[in-house]
């Protein structure tokens, strides 16, 4: 489906963000891309839809190469790549419906989009998606009136509105609380399954990633250092990705914390950060 080969990206400042990355995403496969800040996760997915111009390499979607594409065909290709952003990136002063419909911009002409006269089939699809993400009662609310979780749902609906083949998801949960983060991850992975979509999800919350996806790719300083199932990701790999850290010590501390928290308030624990070792047990079982 999506084949990335030898992708290299060097910023004008001289920083090497991606170093000869090879990655293949099969149809319907959801990948979590983990790694420390500055490892090149964001750059990687922004290269795929060329919001950032890569320095070298090829990115093939089906049998077309995105890197060597002219502007018109790039526009046509971008609509096959739905993107979901960390800070939601909704147009704040437009309504929920206008934001969702903006996912069709690659399909409709300028005047149609200017007058907001979209084909009825687009409107139907927008309503279906808003119902699916649970926001059909907020059609005419302005985006800046929504909560974080609601905004991300609109962002998801906008991306799916493009009828994409692949979703590019940039830190979807970084600005959300733990409970909403889970709901959003469940929504994204659920939608991918329903529609047979592939996805690359940048995420820095490793346990959350391990809970929801079947393939994890670890990136460090622009290079892939781990590629495999969540169950294969052990302390050694984490050290390699994130650098030296006493992962077992963290584990012990977390247990104590957990015990205290359980004593203090059982309800709080549901919303509390679910820690790494516990997630591993879940994944292994």
């Amino acid at each position: 489906m999506l084949q990335i080969e030898g992708l290299t990206m060097r910023y004008p400042t001289g920083d090497l963000a991606l170093d000869n990355v090879d990655l293949t995403v099969e149809r319907g496969q959801v990948i979590a891309l983990i790694g420390p800040s500055g490892a090149g996760k964001s750059t990687l997915i922004r290269c795929v839809n060329r919001l950032v111009e890569p320095t070298a390499g090829s990115i093939r979607l089906g049998d077309i190469d995105i890197v060597r594409m002219g502007r018109t065909s790039l526009r046509r290709t971008r609509r096959r790549l739905g993107m979901i952003f960390q800070e939601y990136a909704l147009v704040e002063r437009l309504s929920v419906m206008e934001n969702v419909l903006s996912g069709r911009l690659g399909y409709v002409g300028f005047w149609r989009s200017y007058l907001r006269r979209y084909p009825q089939s687009d409107i139907d699809e927008a309503f279906r998606l808003l119902e699916r993400v649970g926001l059909d009662h907020m059609v005419d609310k302005r985006a800046d009136a929504l909560s974080g979780g609601q905004r991300q749902r609109v962002g998801i609906a906008r991306a799916l509105m493009q009828n994409p083949d692949i979703l590019l998801v940039d830190e979807p949960t970084a600005s959300l609380d733990p409970k909403t983060s889970r709901q959003i991850m469940r929504l994204i992975t659920g939608l991918c399954r329903e529609r047979g979509l592939g996805a690359i999800i940048n995420i820095h919350d490793v346990p959350l990633a391990m809970q929801f996806v079947e393939r994890i790719v670890g990136l460090r300083a622009g290079e892939i250092v781990y590629d495999g199932p969540p169950s294969g990701l052990d302390d050694a790999h984490l050290t390699e990705i994130y650098g030296e850290e006493d992962w077992s010590g963290t584990r012990a501390a977390d247990r104590e914390e957990e015990a205290d928290a359980a004593k203090a308030d059982a309800a709080l624990k549901v919303a509390a950060r679910v820690d790494l070792p516990e997630m591993k047990k879940v994944a292994a079982s």
Partner: peptide
């Protein structure tokens, strides 16, 4: 109300 129901289809207009 920009959302109206016509023949059990929801129609949306900006204004």
């Amino acid at each position: 109300m920009p959302v109206t129901q016509i023949d059990d289809r929801k129609v949306w207009q900006r204004r």
